[in-house]
Write a protein that binds this DNA or RNA. Structure first.
Lengths: 209, 209
DNA sequence: GGGTATCTTGATGGGTCGCTACAGAAGGAG
DNA sequence: CTCCTTCTGTAGCGACCCATCAAGATACCC
């Protein structure tokens, strides 16, 4: 059964990509339907027919963002031989993404809706959930490291994951404020340099008392 | 010469404080004049007569915020005996501020306007400048530590300050996402545990080569 | 060709935005 | 008292917000 009716006159994927970049740069509330239609080259009814609503379009844009910008970093986190190597690879991939030329600076998930407005509560909660998922991914990688022997068994994986994500969230804002890739890479260097001592301090000694 | 005309019918300082809390929680664009007047218990003409414009009111609110929430942390940074003790005191004071009950979570300067909208470019730049000032304060404290002998002479103070501020920015977002004071304190613990090794790695050896 | 389904264009609705004109109210100066 | 200055409440300005309606256009199916 073939498609019925007049076919769409624009490339839905390309339009979604343009919408993503607009939301990435200006946030959810900072991007109006007028901004979106101008950038996507379509009129409001076409946008609503294709995507449903501004909020639904935003959620699709976040999903696209995560596929394009977030997933490579998470893959690096998973595929590295050790937890700390994975964390370094993730942070460096994100630094690269946050400071890439011809793209908005920083992370869309971090910067697109940080304040609480009643009308955008759903958006804020949605992004907070994405951030929590990132923290959980780091924690799970650390626990896998425990199973594989490169992270001490008693290490406080929750605290370490929160620490790593704090740095990552901060990198986004620094990038948005104009920090260069080199500057942010030195921040990652700082995390790595102290990592062994940090893990040791956040590890409960067992079997020796 | 005494005051002329009808006296103001409300407490300007108390109203400013209420405005600050509204901006702190909902950000600049997320707080409308209607929200402000409802919260301050006044009508728009009174607001404009007393503060000039929404943007001017916001700038005054940020100044009040820095006096009430930021200055104690900066004083702790300055007054501690060593740079790292000052950084710890600053971070812990901020963790306490970010998670205080009956107050909005996180830092107003970090969260009130992260996205770039043409109409609020001035606001965003203003807050970015405040953030840069924070980074500069940490860097200056580290350089004072070099002069006083508790930080190695060749230490990369710019990188270390950027690292500390990355963590602090991240703490704000984690607080906004619901992290408790205890959870954020463990993040500070992570920074402290690795500090010595981090400083050593970011220090250029001199006089030995 | 007719019938039907979908998309596109142009023109708005209904609501909120930041802000202000206006007239009345409340004080000091004379 | 009157005059002058300043603040307060009502009411509303123009601009923008998200979303939609009414027509016309363009495809497939018969």
């Amino acid at each position: 059964m073939a498609v019925r009716g007049r076919p769409r006159g624009f490339d839905r994927e390309a339009a979604l990509r343009l919408a993503m970049e607009a939301f990435w740069e200006h946030g959810y509330e900072g991007t109006s339907i007028g901004d979106l239609t101008a950038r996507m080259g379509i009129r409001p009814p076409s946008l609503y027919a294709a995507f449903g609503s501004k909020e639904a379009l935003f959620r699709e844009a976040v999903a696209l963002y995560e596929g394009m910008e977030g997933e490579p970093a998470l893959a690096a986190l998973r595929e590295a031989p050790t937890a700390i190597a994975g964390i370094e690879a993730m942070l460096r991939a994100n630094v690269c993404s946050y400071t890439a030329p011809d793209k908005p600076k920083g992370c869309m998930v971090v910067l697109a809706a940080t304040t609480y407005t009643p009308s955008t509560e759903g958006i804020r909660d949605f992004l907070a959930e994405q951030r929590r998922a990132g923290t959980a991914a780091v924690r799970e990688r650390l626990e896998r490291g425990q199973a594989e022997g490169d992270v001490p068994p008693g290490a406080d994986t929750a605290a370490l994951a929160a620490y790593v994500m704090s740095v990552q969230f901060g990198l986004s804002l620094q990038a948005r404020d104009g920090a260069t890739r080199e500057e942010l890479d030195t921040v990652v260097d700082c995390v790595l340099a102290g990592w062994e001592a940090t893990v040791a301090a956040r590890t409960a000694r067992a079997g020796t008392g």
